[in-house]
Nucleic acid binder design. Structure first.
Length: 556
RNA sequence: GGCAGCGUAGCUCAGUGGUAGAGCAGAGGACUCAUAAGCCUUUGGUCGUGGGUUCAAAUCCCUCCGCUGCCA
C-alpha cells in the first residue's frame, strides 16, 4: 500500500553559508526520511528554499556594497551546490523571491484578512526625518540602557546580549545618516493568533506521536505566551502588501516564509505540467512532516498551523520532528565568532558520506550532541572504515580473487548461517520501523551492529582457511556474507547514499539502489562482481589539529 | 530574576521502577581474507549532591551545586 508523504524542510536564511548545525538539525534528517520512503515506493514531495527577505540581508548588502538581490542570489546558488554535493535530495529547492511565492503569500494574507483573522492596528515606529523612512530595529543605534555600551541596536545589545526595545535606547540615531529618529504612528497588520488558542490546544493534545520536547515546548507556549503578532514591517525588501495605501510596507518574513511550503508545492506542480498536482500533497490522505531545528518549533506547531486553520482546506502538520542543537568542540555555535564548521568548507576537503555517518549516529534527536574533529576522524577510521568498509572489502576482494569474480554458489546453510541471515532480516525490519518513526540514530546503530555480527561470522567461518580443504564451505560462507552486504547497502542507503550505490554496483547490480526498493535482495549465485575498491578512506589523525585550529578565527 | 532542560565509565552517547549498557581509548590473547582492519577476553561507574516515596529508583518527588537554552 503506497503512501504519500509531504516533507517540508526549514528555509535557510540566505545571508550566510550553512554550517554543520543546520545540517544535523534540519537538513540531513529529512533527506534520510525521504530516501527511505522513496525506496519503499511511497510518493514523496520534499521541498524547501532560500529565505531571501528580511532586514539582516539589507544590512549585509549595505556592508558589502552590494544589492540585497546579489547577496541572496549568491547564497542561494551556494545552497544548491551544497545540497548536490552532500546528497540532500530535494524535489524542489526554490526561494522566497519568486513571483509564485508572492502570489501564494498574498492569497493567504488576503484570505485571512477577509475572514477576520488579520486586523489592522496603529503603532508608534521610529522614523528617520532625513532618510524619510521608517527604521527597522536593526537600523537604529544608540547607548544600551543596561550596560551603557554605545553600539547597541534597536533589537539587542551585542555587548551584554540583552534584547532591547528601540524606544529604550539612549541617544538613538539612524544607522545610515546619524539623525535622531522621531516616533510616528504607522498602520500595521496583526495575525490574530489568540483566536486559534482553543483549536490549537485541542489539536496539539491529540498529537501524542510527537517528540516529547516538541510537545512540551508547544504546550508551554500555548498555555503561556500566545499573543497576536505583527505580520507587516516598514521595509521595502520583501513582498509588498497587496493593498492600496500601504506603500512601503511588506509582509514580515516569519509570516511569509512558512507559506513557502505551500508555494513550493505549487511551483513543483506547475513545472511538472499539472498545475493542480500540488493538491495530492496538501489534501486528503497524505502525511506532512516538517523538519526543523528546535529554534523553529513554534513556527511549525503553532503559527503555521494557525494560518492553515484560518485559511481552511489544507492539511495540518502530521509531525514536526525537531532536533536539538549541535555544539562544536563542546561550545555553542557562533557565526560572529566563527565558531562553526562551514558546509562548503567541509565539502571542499572531504566526502559527504563520512559526515552523514557521524551526524546520523550522533544526531541531536533528544538532546544536544557534540561535534568534534577528533570524534569525526575516529568514527570515520574506527567505525566506517574498520567495521563496515573493511567488512565489505575483505568479503569482496577474497571472493573476487578466489571465485572467479562471481557470487559463489552456496551449499546447504548450517544453523549459524541461517541465524545470520535471519538476524539480517530482523534488523532490516527493525530499521524499517525506526525510520518510519523518525528514530534515525537508533536505526543506523542497528545497521552497524549487523556489520559487526557479520565480521564475527566471517572469523568463525574463516573461508580463507577452509577453502584449502572444502571449497564448497568457503563458497557458502561468502555467499551468506555477500547477502548481508546486500542487505546493508539497502539499509544504509538513506544514510550513506553514495557508498551504498557503489556497493550496489560492486555486487553486480545495475541501476540505482533506490529503484531496487526497500527490501532484501540476495545476489543471484553466478552474478558477476565488479572489481572492488575501498568504500571509504582513512583520515590522518593530524587533521584533528589542523581542522580544530581553523575554529574561532574571524576572517572577514 | 522567571521558566525549561541537562548532569550515567577517561571520551562520545544509550538506558523513564526490578540485579548498571554500547562504541572508542587502556590491558592481555589467538588469527591473517582485509584499508595493521577484524575476532576473543579483560580493566573501569556508590548513574552531580543531600534527603524523601517504594518491597524495589539512574528512572518518581524535594533541596543544593554545576552547565545550557528560552523569556524579562
Amino acid at each position: 500500500m503506497s503512501e504519500r508523504i509531504f516533507i517540508g524542510v526549514a528555509w535557510p536564511y540566505a545571508d550566510g553559508p550553512l554550517h554543520l548545525g543546520h545540517i544535523a538539525g534540519a537538513y540531513l534528517p529529512p533527506d534520510i526520511f525521504a530516501r527511505y520512503h522513496r525506496a519503499k515506493g511511497n510518493e514523496v514531495l520534499m521541498v524547501s528554499g532560500s529565505d531571501m527577505h528580511g532586514t539582516p540581508i539589507t544590512i549585509k548588502a549595505e556592508h558589502e556594497g552590494k544589492t540585497p538581490g546579489e547577496i541572496v542570489t549568491q547564497y542561494h546558488q551556494q545552497f544548491l551546490a551544497s545540497w548536490q554535493k552532500l546528497g540532500i535530495s530535494f524535489d524542489l529547492f526554490t526561494n522566497t523571491g519568486t513571483a509564485n511565492h508572492a502570489e501564494v503569500s498574498c492569497d493567504i494574507f488576503l484570505t485571512l484578512l477577509d475572514k477576520g483573522y488579520i486586523y489592522k492596528a496603529s503603532v508608534s515606529q521610529p522614523f528617520c526625518p532625513v532618510c524619510q523612512r521608517f527604521l527597522p530595529d536593526r537600523y537604529i543605534e544608540g547607548t544600551c540602557p543596561y550596560c551603557n555600551s554605545s553600539g547597541a541596536r534597536g533589537d539587542q545589545c551585542d555587548d551584554c546580549g540583552k534584547p532591547i526595545n528601540a524606544v529604550e535606547l539612549i541617544n538613538p540615531r539612524c544607522r545610515s545618516c546619524g539623525a535622531a529618529p522621531q516616533f510616528k504612528d504607522s498602520e500595521h497588520f496583526y495575525l490574530k493568533l489568540t483566536a486559534f488558542r482553543d483549536r490549537l490546544l485541542d489539536w496539539v493534545k491529540q498529537q501524542t506521536h510527537w517528540r516529547q520536547n516538541v510537545l512540551n515546548f508547544t504546550m508551554r507556549y500555548l498555555e503561556g505566551g500566545l499573543k497576536d503578532r505583527a505580520i507587516t514591517r516598514d521595509i521595502d525588501w520583501g513582498i509588498p502588501l497587496p493593498l492600496d495605501g500601504f506603500e512601503g510596507k511588506c509582509l514580515y518574513v516569519w509570516f511569509e516564509a512558512v507559506i513557502g511550503y505551500l508555494s513550493a508545492a505549487k511551483e513543483w506542480a506547475k513545472s511538472s505540467g499539472d498545475d493542480e498536482k500540488w493538491r495530492s500533497f496538501w489534501q486528503g490522505e497524505v502525511k506532512s512532516y516538517y523538519f526543523v531545528g528546535k529554534d523553529n518549533i513554534i513556527f511549525h506547531t503553532i503559527i503555521w498551523p494557525a494560518m492553515l486553520m484560518g485559511y481552511d482546506g489544507l492539511n495540518l502538520p502530521y509531525d514536526v520532528p525537531a532536533n536539538e542543537f549541535l555544539t562544536i568542540e563542546g561550545k555553542r555555535l557562533s557565526t560572529s565568532r566563527n565558531w562553526a564548521v562551514w558546509l562548503p568548507d567541509y565539502l571542499s576537503r572531504y566526502d559527504p558520506d563520512p559526515l552523514r555517518y557521524l551526524l546520523s549516529i550522533n544526531m541531536p534527536e533528544t538532546s544536544d550532541t557534540d561535534f568534534s574533529w577528533r570524534e569525526f576522524i575516529r568514527r570515520n577510521n574506527d567505525e566506517l572504515v574498520a567495521t563496515y568498509g573493511n567488512l565489505v572489502h575483505r568479503v569482496l576482494t577474497f571472493t573476487y580473487r578466489s571465485f572467479n569474480a562471481c557470487v559463489p554458489v552456496p551449499g546447504q546453510l548450517d544453523n549459524h548461517s541461517q541465524a545470520l541471515l535471519s538476524s539480517a532480516s530482523d534488523i532490516f525490519n527493525t530499521m524499517d520501523n525506526l525510520l518510519y518513526h523518525c528514530h534515525f540514530k537508533e536505526a543506523i546503530r542497528s545497521a552497524m551492529s549487523l556489520a559487526q555480527e557479520t565480521n564475527r561470522y566471517l572469523d568463525e567461518k574463516s573461508p580463507w582457511k577452509v577453502i584449502k580443504q572444502d571449497r564448497q564451505a568457503s563458497a557458502t560462507a561468502l555467499y551468506v556474507a555477500i547477502s548481508v552486504l546486500s542487505c546493508l547497502k539497502t539499509a544504509l542507503y538513506p544514510f550513506l547514499p553514495f557508498s551504498s550505490q557503489k556497493l550496489h554496483e560492486f555486487l553486480g547490480f545495475k541501476g540505482s539502489v533506490e529503484d531496487d526498493g526497500w527490501k532484501l535482495h540476495f545476489p543471484p549465485p553466478g552474478q558477476k562482481l565488479l572489481p572492488p575498491e575501498p568504500l571509504f578512506s582513512k583520515l590522518d589523525e593530524e587533521l584533528v589539529d589542523e581542522e580544530t585550529s581553523r575554529l574561532g578565527h574571524v576572517h572577514y
